[in-house]
Write a protein that binds this DNA or RNA. Structure first.
Lengths: 192, 192
DNA sequence: TGCTAAGCGGAGGGGGCCTCCGTATTGTAT
DNA sequence: ATACAATACGGAGGCCCCCTCCGCTTAGCA
């Protein structure tokens, strides 16, 4: 009905961009210190920004998590390719899963959100899943080709299982590694 | 200082006992319908009881969980002995773990609380842990003796891993069973 | 029937989630 | 330099939850 006022989308306002960064930084710190269930009001307070501003930018906690962790999740995926180059097939897969577990522990409850999200349909998590899948599938298929992983296993099952490891709270790193070792044994083909 | 008025502890009053039962029933239903994070006020409402009454009886959510699930947890433990009698060592262990997973799925988030509690120090959960440990250890040691499980594995690690399976939300039963199969393979000794 | 320990229930303080809208700021057009 | 939208800000307020505290009620003994 009304005339489309300006077809060209205006660039983000300077103050908006500044506050966005402040919020993501504050959230990153707060999540690291107190876990991902820090109250959003606390985060707004830390960022020196009104709660309204936070909610305008990030409609819910998940949106904020996405912004905070997008880089790190990407880096987890990227690591897969390094392992694929430098290590033998099974070792590469094992190393990647181990780094996945280690990451999950250090970031506390992120792994919970993440693993739960492997079956969700948020925009972001979808594309995240694609990345993880691509990286993991590379490692898995190599390991299968080398005859070191049973061919019928599905990547997503493995990921879910590994993700579950970090979900029990307060997992010690060596504890988690023991659990992962059991899983890794479970991947190998039965003796002929 | 004052005279101990009545050394004999009076029996619980009838209304108190009645309300206790009402609360546990209401909680059981509510937990089944909406998961264990149903608000306690909602539960009191369902029970037709004041919130104060709930809190006097159950100082926190965990206490209520305990009351609701004590029977069922016991029955999970008991099942172990049945399996031990009727099945071959490894199959008995597998069956028990499978029933554990199945139980966890049906009761939604109870498994989360439970598995987390395997490393906690609440009175109740301690004794629960003892029961689980006793039952599980029986099955595990038989399976080890039969040479079907690697001897260095610890029950608690296995339980934690299996518990993790149900933690990802919305796990389909057959999905969960696939994950459990991986774990079960991981228990077996490597080929000689 | 009377009395008191035991039990009841809900108001209220603290806090988190999220929305809404009056006010302030930015950047562009004149 | 100035005016004026478009954009963004921020916090009050509604709603819900957790949990505590204490004046009122009731069961059950004597």
């Amino acid at each position: 009905m009304g005339s489309t006022p300006l077809p060209s989308t205006r660039p983000t306002r300077a103050d908006a961009a500044r506050n966005y960064d402040l919020l993501v930084s504050a959230a990153r710190e707060a999540f690291a210190e107190h876990g991902t269930d820090t109250s959003l009001e606390e985060i707004a307070r830390r960022a020196g920004v009104g709660i309204g501003t936070l909610y305008r930018r990030f409609p819910n906690r998940t949106a904020l998590l996405e912004a905070v962790y997008v880089d790190e999740i990407q880096s987890v995926c990227d690591r897969a390719y390094g392992f694929a180059e430098r290590l033998e097939p099974f070792d590469a897969l094992a190393a990647w899963l181990r780094s996945f577990v280690g990451y999950g522990i250090s970031k506390k409850s992120l792994a919970v959100e993440l693993t739960a999200a492997l079956g969700k349909d948020s925009q972001f998590f979808q594309s995240c899943k694609v990345n993880v899948q691509e990286a993991g599938e590379l490692l898995l298929s190599k390991a299968k080709a080398a005859g070191e992983v049973r061919p019928e296993l599905e990547l997503m099952d493995i990921m879910r299982l590994v993700g579950g490891i970090t979900m029990g709270r307060d997992m010690e790193p060596d504890e988690a590694n023991r659990l992962l070792d059991i899983v890794l044994c479970g991947l190998r083909p039965a003796a002929p």
